[in-house]
Amino acid sequence: MGGETTGRGRLDVADMRRRVGAHARERVIELLLTACGVVSIVTTVAILGVLVFETASFFAEVSLAEFLLDTRWTPLFVDKHFGIWPLVAGTVLTSAIAIGVALPFGLLAAIYLSEFATPRARSLLKPALEVLAGVPTIVYGYFALVVLTPLLQRFIPDLAGFNALSPGIIMGIMIMPMICSLSEDAIFAVPESMREGAYALGAGKLQTVFRVVLPTAFSGIAASVILAISRAVGETMIVAIAAGQQPNLTANPRESVETMTTYMVQIGLGDTPTGTIEYKTLFVVGASLFVMTFAINLLSQRLSRRFREGR
């Protein structure tokens, strides 16, 4: 019997009083754990601080009007232009191609998993699809540049060596599992009673899927697609390897484009001295990327909340 519990007579006051040492120990541990949690707040504040600080110093030299109205992005040339649109166009183009691939594949796969697959097929397919999302992006970049682009060039003769199409397609394959698994969750959440209601009215499986299940799960599916867009916009290595490094205000997927992320990699690879305007462009592009993804994520959160509440 330990000393703590032996030799106790009737309850006396001191018995249940806080013991200073033990209490202090608990408080210290709680404080340490709280500090671990606070690290996430500090991280957010630091990211915002870094972006705001360097962006502000960028706009001290370049006007907001030039940033938003110029159509050329040439900060590394002698004749410097700071129009963000070519980079935005590159990002939007590659992301759009990626979604164009990922959405049909992801959604149809989700319908298969939730409406048609046997439990056994499900248990094999789901982890296999997760592998797709777990392959490092540098590996996908290699596939896009070394395998897919030469292959596509056989069918599309005027496809440039660096182009938006090939990395876009590969990126689509990478984010397809994300759309698939989130959409499947949304489809799965459609109450069985709604399906049964449709069957009771004599509807077949197809009609039930297209007229009842998909419309009901729509905002959940939309949330998953939007989250996938955010992922594509922020994706770096695939486009940095295979899309090229020429800021190009174009919607032509056969041409070489530079995305916002690729530009950041380009600056990161060069030995850009701090304090120069080139160094600051790194942060202003980063801030633009941050704002874009944050807005997209927010929209996705909204939609998925509406989906959960409307269910």
Binding site: T5, L11, D15, M16, R17, R18, A22
Partner: peptide, 20 residues
């Protein structure tokens, strides 16, 4: 009150209350 002592008094440690 446990044996006349208020277990919710400010200086009482709930952990020690639970051992009794």
């Amino acid at each position: 009150l446990l044996d006349g002592v208020d277990i919710y008094a400010g200086d009482i440690d709930p952990v020690l209350v639970r051992r009794r």
